[in-house]
Write a protein that binds this DNA or RNA. Sequence first.
DNA 1: CTGGGGATGGGGCCC
DNA 2: GGGGCCCCATCCCCA
Length: 523
Amino acid sequence: MANCMVFHTQIASIMEVLANAAVAEICKLVDNDYAVIRLEVSQSQKENRALRKKLQLLELKVARERVLASRPSSVKILDRYRGIVRGEGHLTEGHRSFVKSMKNNTWIDDQSITVDEGSGTSTQHVIMIESADAEAAGPGVKMERSEGDEDPQHSRDIQTGAPSVATEDPITAPVQPRTRSSITEVSGTPNAVLKSKTDTETLTRRLLHTGSDHRSDPERLGSPPAPSSEYLLVFHQSQRTVHSRGDGDGDTLDTGGDDPSCSYTTEMDPGNISLGLETQTDLSRGDWNHYSSSVYSEGCLDKKGENIIVDEVSVKVECDASPTWNADSHLGDGHSQGRDFLDYRENLETNTNIVTHSPIHVFRDCDPVSTSMEPSDLHSHVIFDQILNSNDRAKAQARGGGSTSGNSKEKRFLCMFCNKGFSCPQKVEVHQRVHTGVKPFSCTQCHMRFAQARDLKRHQRVHTGEKPYSCPQCEKRFSRQDHLKMHLKVHTGERPFSCTHCGKTFSERSYLRIHQQKNHSTL
DNA sequence: CTGGGGATGGGGCCC
DNA sequence: GGGGCCCCATCCCCA
């Protein structure tokens, strides 16, 4: 009996041990599962946040498209002006940008934003918004240097030609001198002059405010966009045109660049430029803003790689700027980049049949050549040298290719940057490399890169020493036919280019141009 | 020595 | 892909 009792006691203790062990095991399992669940919940929350951001960005896009559908705008970016300074006296300082609302003071009409910078060492900016009233105001409309000239490299002036009632009261809109940027806002009426140091947000607000006031006139505006949309549009415009990264200290504006759906990276230097598209974005009308902002910007630049994120916009322009320019008077030799944009906007507004070849295709199709990162300033310089080479744009337009209004039937594929028409998408792709700086063709023997395969092929003769074209008169040999043709003028004495001022003749047009610049620059 | 102009070579880009 | 033109930089010559 006693043994039986002992046996039962042992059984009970064993059972207790087993029960404890089972409980411990269960607790362990529960803890593990709980950790897993917590991890999953955390991940889900992250995903939710990311999706929320995406949703917000999509809403922004939609709103922007709505605005674009109702209000055309344009970006005018001027190239270096090397020629004679011809301009209005009050605009003779270095680097100016103009935001000009033309025609009836409404944002429905053309809004051209011109970024015009010069000499590379100074990055002063003037953004001017003018209206017809402002122009009519004459002397009353003046542009004043911003008081933020304590740092001339980051000053921005804004002149707006909006009616005085439309001009935001500086008191009601306190500025936030968060950056060294400064903005001078001058309304179209003589007695409404605003000056303020502000940051880009302030500029955005001011632009918005002006636009809203214009919009508030129902007679001028057929279908006013929603205020939120308005804000978005202006916001982007201001980003694109105002933000400047003079010394790489980054007057950048973060507007949701973390959106993974619309980011790409770019690497640019004089010889190495590639744009690797990470994602695809519909760059139809609405996304033009999106894209152009990124193309002409350096946004969200990291310390090392200058990754450009779409919607992250800060424009650095380094051009030899003409001190004067306005949207209505181009220089004689034509710097029409801005006009290109303007025309593009107008065309988008008026011609719904336009087939625009998205530059995304350019990015997607180009050979993504890995290149080394370059300093951001160099990036900026290069891309704007290439993008803003409006001499070429003007030249292109002079050749009759600028606008396709006349030949859009054959050239249905438009460059979204300059509105130039092409007969097939591939040609648009190649052409748009002019604007994007994409150079898929790299020389294997040097760092040079080219936008066109033919250019690379031609370049490689530099390395091979191949000179297939020989002069029949002097045995000189040339690598290029056009150089031979030019050389032949030495023998023929052909000097088809004559100076209209002194009658001196030259064998090349560039000689004549240089001659006129040196000797007849005041004419 | 200097500036203007010619010659040449290279890149950009349109046709 | 070739032709052609433009622009620019550089070197050189010469007045």
